[in-house]
Design a binder for these strands. Structure first.
Lengths: 246, 246
DNA sequence: CCCCATCTGTGCGCATATCGAACAAAATTA
DNA sequence: TAATTTTGTTCGATATGCGCACAGATGGGG
């Protein structure tokens, strides 16, 4: 069903940098014929997913329904949000839950205590998996061959001077993460930011998601993170063990 | 481009109550032929938007990208999030920004201080416009004829005993909201919850979004809301006046 | 246990919607 | 103003999706 696939690719070309696009811009962005793109956009407009002023197209909030439909797919956010709120309150720092989607982690729930990252994180936000604490924990649960292939087919930009960018080094770190059951990130994703993550596993032992705490580097040394926060994270981890699907 | 429209309708059939659906279930839910639904779902699976275990389909986090693409459409979240954080911190209560989509409001940014509603609100969450403070403010900015048509073509369920459900009464309230520049909701959307909202208007005077504060009813009388929080909300309102598009 | 009733998933021919080259209109440059 | 590039739209050949009809699964009742 080509038309559907095309239309979805069209929707994904709209980004923060390109919120208003002409037919030709979209055509260039997704490498489809202008006529094809035109049909897609006109359909989207007719169905209420886009606005058209005769020159430029814009997505409407209706598109958010699609994302919501997906979030609704997983009971995860509803289950973990209360625990996340309690956890954040108890430790006085921000915590989040995310899942793996390819080479990215996707935030599905979050309890923000203080703004700690320069960008606003919210459900649906994405960050690269290879350099985040939750990403490390989620990757560590996958077969090594799969992760190696992933790391070698994905650009691994150094987001800070501390970011690990060598696939071998990352794989070694993943092995340690797997062995110890948690991951610590020390300013690899953003300077001034440290975080600690544990996997959330189902009763059957499958890693479903990851839970983390993030805080300003000024608040604590990297070496002290596990000692301070691991018990609280593991308590949530244990309570969720029976509740998670799969 | 029929296939695209069909596919989007298929995605929207997935809800919290029906996260895993067979072909026939989806077919029944959106009134399309089973064969058509099947093609849609197989395409979605092939493109990575759905998973298929041979019997049931599930949406994948990839679908969230679509919603994110839409949020990216509006600079609004990025602009307001920092102000929202500061506002929440200053007044010690939760605040949110939402926009109007048909008869619903859609949250685009939120700073939660305390859990105040029984359901978790997050960007993308939807609530009916007619009984929420932000909805009232957004509806009050639309032409009365349009709002009347909307109210008469939409079910107006009483979410609590206090919910206004008579279109005439709501229109009268909207007129008052428009005149005074803010809306107060006293347990109309959920028992134990009160809120205060102001419109966010662009430099050209167009109402783009709404900003609100929500708190437990036990914390303050309805009559005292405006006196306590209006100055803070209006300060944000004023600072955003020049920054909003449109 | 078997049969019938019902529901679900899937191949196939026909009709229709989609593709993309070719055309027209507009914007840009000289 | 005319040449040139870029963008939007049209239209016929053709591939694509539509939905009927069939097969397989399911499950209740005799």
């Amino acid at each position: 069903m080509g038309g559907l696939a095309k239309g979805l690719r069209v929707i994904e070309t709209f980004t923060a940098e390109r919120p208003r696009q002409s037919i030709s811009e979209v055509s260039a962005a997704c490498g489809m014929d202008r006529a094809t793109v035109r049909r897609c956009l006109l359909t989207l407009a007719q169905e209420g997913y886009a606005d058209y002023d005769g020159k430029f197209f814009t997505l409407t909030p209706r598109v958010l329904r699609l994302g919501t439909a997906c979030l609704a797919t997983m009971p995860l956010p509803q289950i973990v949000q209360p625990m996340l709120d309690a956890l954040s309150e108890a430790i006085g720092e921000s915590s989040s839950v995310s899942i793996l989607d390819g080479d990215e982690i996707v935030y599905v729930a979050r309890a923000a205590q203080r703004r700690v990252m320069s960008i606003a994180l919210m459900p649906g936000s994405r960050l690269p998996a290879f350099c985040t604490s939750m990403g490390r924990v989620l990757l560590a649960a996958r077969p090594e061959a799969e992760v190696r292939a992933l790391l070698e087919s994905t650009p691994l930009p150094a987001r800070t001077p501390k970011t690990l960018t060598d696939p071998g080094a990352i794989l070694a770190e993943l092995a340690r993460v797997k062995a110890q059951g948690y991951a610590v990130i020390d300013e690899e994703v953003e300077l001034g930011l440290r975080s600690l993550a544990v996997p959330l596993v189902s009763a059957r032992g499958r890693t479903i998601a990851a839970l983390n705490v993030g805080l300003a580097a000024s608040r604590m040394e990297a070496g002290a993170l596990a000692g301070h926060f691991l018990p609280a994270l593991q308590e949530v981890q244990a309570r969720l063990k029976g509740l998670l699907p799969g």
